[in-house]
Design a protein around this nucleic acid. Sequence first.
DNA 1: CAATTCGGGGGG
DNA 2: CCCACCCCCCGAATTG
Length: 559
Amino acid sequence: MSQEPLPPDRWALAEYQDGEVRFCPVDGRGRPAGPVERAAGPVEAVRSRPGAGRWIWRSTAGPYPRLLDAGLRVQRCYDIEAAEALLLGHEGAHGSPRSLPAARARLRGLPVPADAPSRLPDSAQSALFETGPVPLPPDADPLESLLEVYAAQLTRTELTAHPGRMRLLVAAESAGALVASEMRRAGLPWRADVHRQVLDELLGPRYAGGQEPRRLAELAAQVADAFGERVRPDLPADVVTAFRRAGFAVTSTRAWELRDIDHPAVEPLLEYKKLYRLYTAHGWTWLRTWVRGGRFRPEYVPAGAASGRWTTNGGGALQIPRVLRRSVVADPGWCLVVADADQLEPRVLAAISRDPGLMEAAGSTGDLYTALSGRAFTGDREEAKLALLGAVYGQTHGGGLRHLSQLRRRFPAAVALVDDAARAGEQGRLVRTWLGRTCPPPGGEPGAGETAPEGASPGGSAAGRARGRFTRNFVVQGSAADWALLMLAALRRSLTGMRAELVFFQHDEVIVHCPETESATVAEAIAAAGDTAGDLTFGRTPVRFPFSTAVVKRYCDAA
DNA sequence: CAATTCGGGGGG
DNA sequence: CCCACCCCCCGAATTG
């Protein structure tokens, strides 16, 4: 069946109620290939098998943080619950519970338990209500259940549209889970003193007793002066009313709408909103909550977004405001290698569409948009960029559309790919990324093949068109997320044995914290990881995946 | 009174 | 003029 040589050494590991673990070697079909061993915990088990190639376990977030605490890493893993989510999605059962007990129950035709909520409401945060992983029924043996589900997953994988790609996707998602745990443990270097200095500079000192910062109070007073009445700048309704009274027919208080209004309240108001946002989202409270011992440690959630992009659970790690990048400072003698993938989405589009013209343009490491504008595309770099992004996002009006027909002529296969994806969405069909991650069905979470009730003519309705834009973008953004996982896995591999640590990942950007002496090696490893991931993910194409890389002491000093 | 939605801003 | 796409986070208002 599969011609790939099997990893020499895979081990299944399951935790029991009393904390004990049992583990055994596993063959290529998911059957036990040796005696079951016991250990006091995952640390003891993994330590006893230093040569294990891949650990198969229920969920990386369970045992792996404890392994890291004990100073252990594993080379590779197979995350059953991550795989279950990917397979369910591919099978069109997107929202079905993904836990090991749920997967087992489905195999046996038993009632399927719901998943534990991924994020608890604040009111339930008390230890009393802490919800652990969904429990197996008391009569189920954890290791046997794990192997039963694993074996079935291997079979289901072979039934997917592209089994080889799905195998790769599961491996990549599992590697991502390892990276997420490791990054959280390492933490992003964060100087609380610098952060406080930024807050003091921009917001001024806080008044005693939890009052708002002085600068916010001053700006609020200026707004009130300008209107000649008290207006609370953080209440949109208040502000709209005040502008109406002053003779300006605004419909919202969005920055782009207010920017062009000639009224003395506008400037302090916009400044207030910017600073208010900093104060509430990344102010002193955030600092107290999230920064400990000079490190910011968010909980990353791989595939938290439908497209496969990561999210975080609290801390807003993927929305660090630019003004706070000054606080991300390397340790003495160390540096940050900050690397940003260049024009990732158009390069991904080139690879997944195999469009000859676009592949040729993406076959160089130079700026892709400049390459486009230099060719038979009449327009400058900015216009080329807008046209291409407009095609990927499903732009409906505006300047970028002017060049769309030209794009269509120059890069017919690329445009056809996103157009097909859009049509699929409008017709209520599912689309997949290159590796086979499947978009959620229309009409919300519930999952299992529901048919949109009001979708008689989805192509014609506003909802149908919105769905088309979603699926159009999904195939590109999601395939870029496929690539990013393999890039992380490749980079992680090449950093083993070094002191360098991956400390941040944001869609198309990574930060590695390393001794200054390692920076050149790390930069090379990142460059190599981009192209390696391109070949692994999409097969061999001429498309290159370069990074803009900077070696800096402070995050803000990277381009 | 708690849960949900809205509006506006941040990131890619 | 901006926008299309994916998200997070907060406070206030609204709803059950």
